[in-house]
Nucleic acid binder design. Structure first.
Lengths: 119, 119
DNA sequence: TTATATTTGTCCGTATGTATT
DNA sequence: AAATACATACGGACAAATATA
C-alpha cells in the first residue's frame, strides 16, 4: 500500500491534487460536505477536517452557508538578504518536501545564511 | 455557574489571554483536554476546537501524547531556498534601510535567487 | 525491560443553529 | 417560505504515542 494514511489527510491530499492539476479551478466551489461524505463514505467530521487543512494551507476559503471555494495562487515575493518579514498571524512555512511548520505570529523571517561548502 | 462556557471561541480567548498575560509562560504545558473538559463543562470536541484555534494563531504547539505547549514569540526564522512562507494576514516586509512594505495575505515569500555578479 | 496510565489522534453518529440561496 | 450548506456542540469508541512506575 502506498500508505493507508488517515481519513482526512488522504482526502485533503486528493482535493489538493485536483486543485494543483487544475481540475478544480480558482473560484470554483468544492462539493458540499454532504456530497463529499457520500462520495467518500467518511463522516462529516472527517470531511470537515480535510477542508480545514486545505484552509490552513491557504488553498481554499470557506464562506458560511455558501460553500468552500478554490483560491487563486498568491503572488510571489522574493526575500533578499537583509530584508525581513513578519505578520500579525501565524506564519506557515512549507518545506521542500511539502511538509509545513507553523510559526508564532510576530516571528521574523529572514534569509538563512548560505551554508559553507565544507560542512 | 462557574462561567459562561459558551463555545470554543470563548475558551480559546480565555487561554489566549492567559498566554498574553504571562499566566501561561512559553514552554509551559496547557491543562490536558480532559482537565479542560472538567473545568469548563464543555465537550472534548469543543475543547479541541479551542486548542486548534490557538494552534492556528501560532500561540501553541501540540505534541502527540505529550500535551499542548505555549510557544515563545519574537523568534527569528531563517528561510532557506526551496522553502516558502505564507500567512492569513498581511505580511510586512522590512527592507535593509528600515522602510516597510505591506503585502496581501496569501503572498508566498520565497528566497530571492542570487543575482549574478555581472548585472 | 516491561507494564500501566496518561494524553492526544482519529473516527463515527446525532442534533440544532445560522446564513445563504 | 423553503431548501441548501456550513457552524457549533454533544456524545462515544478505539488507536497511537508518550510519560511514568
Amino acid at each position: 500500500m502506498t500508505g493507508p494514511l488517515n481519513g482526512w489527510r488522504t482526502l485533503a491530499e486528493q482535493i489538493s491534487e485536483q486543485i494543483s492539476s487544475g481540475c478544480l479551478a480558482p473560484g470554483q466551489r468544492l462539493p458540499s460536505e454532504e456530497q463529499l461524505q457520500q462520495r467518500t463514505g467518511l463522516s462529516r467530521t472527517t470531511v470537515r477536517a480535510a477542508i480545514a487543512e486545505l484552509r490552513r494551507l491557504g488553498q481554499v476559503e470557506t464562506r458560511h452557508s455558501a460553500g468552500t471555494f478554490v483560491l487563486g495562487v498568491g503572488d510571489m515575493f522574493g526575500l533578499r538578504p537583509g530584508e525581513s518579514v513578519t505578520a500579525s498571524a501565524a506564519l506557515v512555512v512549507t518545506g521542500v518536501d511539502g511538509t509545513t511548520r507553523t510559526l508564532p505570529a510576530g516571528t521574523r523571517i529572514v534569509v538563512a545564511p548560505a551554508e559553507p561548502p565544507g560542512s
